[in-house]
Amino acid sequence: MPEPIIRIDNIVKRYGPLTVLDGLSMEVMPGEKLALIGPSGSGKTTILRILMTLETISDGFIQVDGEQLYHVKKNGQLVPADERHLHKMREKIGMVFQHFNLFPHKCVLDNVTLAPILTKGMPRAAAEKRAMELLDMVGLADKAKSMPAQLSGGQKQRVAIARALALSPKIMLFDEVTSALDPELVEEVLNVMRKLAAETDMTMLLVTHEMGFAHDFADRVLFFDRGKIVEEGKPEDIFRHPKQERTQTFLRKIIAAGHRV
């Protein structure tokens, strides 16, 4: 039995008086494709942000790829980690954002090559070769010299995926990556992700409102509500035979809102 690549142990996240995550624990196996669903404010995006070290945790422990994410061992005790440790840990994780967050002053190619050159010291030629392979994979090799402002939303998001992949992370986090897109552009991004899932053994965590995609894509679905995992299981079980009432209510609302399952 392999070790989980992510082990979240009883974490708490508070924003002032508001508790977003209250003693959450979960594990993710290497190569697993996980879909996190649930109403907004349920804490699912917060988990991705915590894993990307964009938020800190108020309590608890997270282990990623055999190492503590937010802590280091010092004299046999776990103490909060410094920036250097976080820097090392971030190498294992990549993230794609809802609003793409491309660098508007850099062309597509530079968006993809910037981080490998700066953080891994990759020679420019090698970084560009790898970037072109990735852009080809997302179907945008011909846009390498375009500026982000010249691209459609779907194209931007595909560049953002290539950019995150350029650092070869073991874990990819997708935070509502199609929510900001026009409906007709959603499919081109989902296709890239399907391809990615089929061709790599990367671990992927996906926060989404695309229930149909979550159903096809995920090995396991977690339903979140109010900072807790209410129900989890195989996509067929969660979507076809949800046991918990809150899951049923949520799915009914989503279907009523016109999302496919």
Partner: peptide
């Protein structure tokens, strides 16, 4: 946040 995610 993009900078952090890209480990700059």
């Amino acid at each position: 946040e993009a900078c952090i995610a890209l480990n700059l």
